[in-house]
């Protein structure tokens, strides 16, 4: 037999094991520190901002002109731009994403699905700056042939291209949720004489609805945080409007616009981007929590 380890070797090995476990724990905990650091930085700089601008002016003001000589700090125009572009994206992606998901999950052959899904998922891997180019120089001219007076920068084309970007989130994740529905539900429905479409719409979709909703919410959260597409194609003037044909700035586009100029560190204008970022983080947090909750619920069904 091979010689057993001596006491010292054993002790050294145990120490080594402990050290490795500690290092791994630190790595895992680092992700929590990242989150804490994000929240701390945003709140710290925002506190500086809110000490000179009343929070009510910020939340309810309808004019956002922080770089003008008579600055006003109402976030509503930026928030409106963000929500409007997200809404356009959602209107575009909802029917396409849902029908694609039902089709791929219930009708397409496994072979077709195996080929199409990775290609669709490429849509979420395209660099956003390329999407911005596409929105400004392809989508906008295309839309201008239908809507003659459409300005060169507008929320509509940015929103549609964001919609294209989130097709994989919505379609692919919804499809996963629908395919997780056990086959005996389908078999039961088909045995009762329902067609495949009826089975898909009345049995599979309701059974997978929380997963599908989670997929949509994840897509919305992506759309809210999308930056380059709106910064390039939607124009950068804050504009409180409900008309997607007009140009408007979003929260993210404003941050980019300010960051491109060289603002002195610690100035009020510098702090505005952190206050805007805090609003953005809270907005996406709400969607992420909703999505997380829905996914959790969806996991408990079967």
């Amino acid at each position: 037999m091979a010689s057993a380890l001596t006491v010292w070797e054993r002790r050294r090995q145990r120490l080594r094991e402990r050290a490795i476990e500690f290092v791994l724990l630190v790595a895992a905990a680092s992700s929590v520190f990242v989150t804490l650091a994000i929240v701390a930085v945003l709140i710290y700089e925002s506190l500086g901002f809110f000490s000179s601008v009343p929070i009510t002016d910020f939340l309810f003001g309808t004019v956002w002109t922080p770089l003008f000589s008579n600055p006003q700090y109402g976030i509503l125009p930026l928030l409106g731009g963000t929500l409007l572009s997200t809404f356009v994206a959602l209107l575009f992606v909802a029917p396409i994403g849902l029908v694609t998901a039902v089709y791929l999950s219930e009708f397409a052959s496994p072979r077709v699905r195996e080929i199409i899904k990775p290609i669709l998922e490429l849509l979420s891997g395209v660099p956003t700056v390329v999407y911005g180019f596409f929105a400004l120089l392809f989508m906008t001219p295309l839309l201008q042939t239908f809507i003659p007076n459409l300005p060169g920068f507008n929320i509509l084309s940015a929103g549609i291209v964001i919609g294209i970007m989130i097709i994989p989130y919505v379609a692919s994740l919804s499809e996963d949720a629908m395919r997780a529905v056990p086959n005996n539900l389908r078999d039961g429905s088909l045995a009762m004489g329902a067609t495949r479409l009826e089975t898909a719409v009345r049995v599979v979709l309701p059974a997978a609805i929380s997963g599908v909703a989670a997929a949509f919410i994840l897509g919305i959260s992506r759309a809210v945080g999308e930056t380059m597409i709106v910064a390039i194609a939607a124009g950068q003037q804050p504009n409180l409007t409900l008309d997607p044909r007009e140009p408007a700035a979003t929260i993210t586009a404003y941050i980019v616009q300010v960051a491109l100029g060289d603002l002195p560190h610690g100035s009020l204008a510098y702090q505005t981007i952190f206050a805007a970022g805090l609003v953005l983080l809270l907005l996406t947090l709400v969607f992420n929590i909703a999505g997380f909750w829905l996914r959790h619920k969806f996991r408990e069904v079967y």
């Binding site: 650091a37 994000i38 994840l218 930056t227 993210t252 941050i255 983080l281 992420n288 997380f292």
Partner: peptide, 13 residues
């Protein structure tokens, strides 16, 4: 949750 944080927020950090 971190996976859902918009990339520009990482830029602010």
């Amino acid at each position: 949750n971190l996976a859902g944080v918009p990339s520009i927020v990482f830029g602010l950090l």
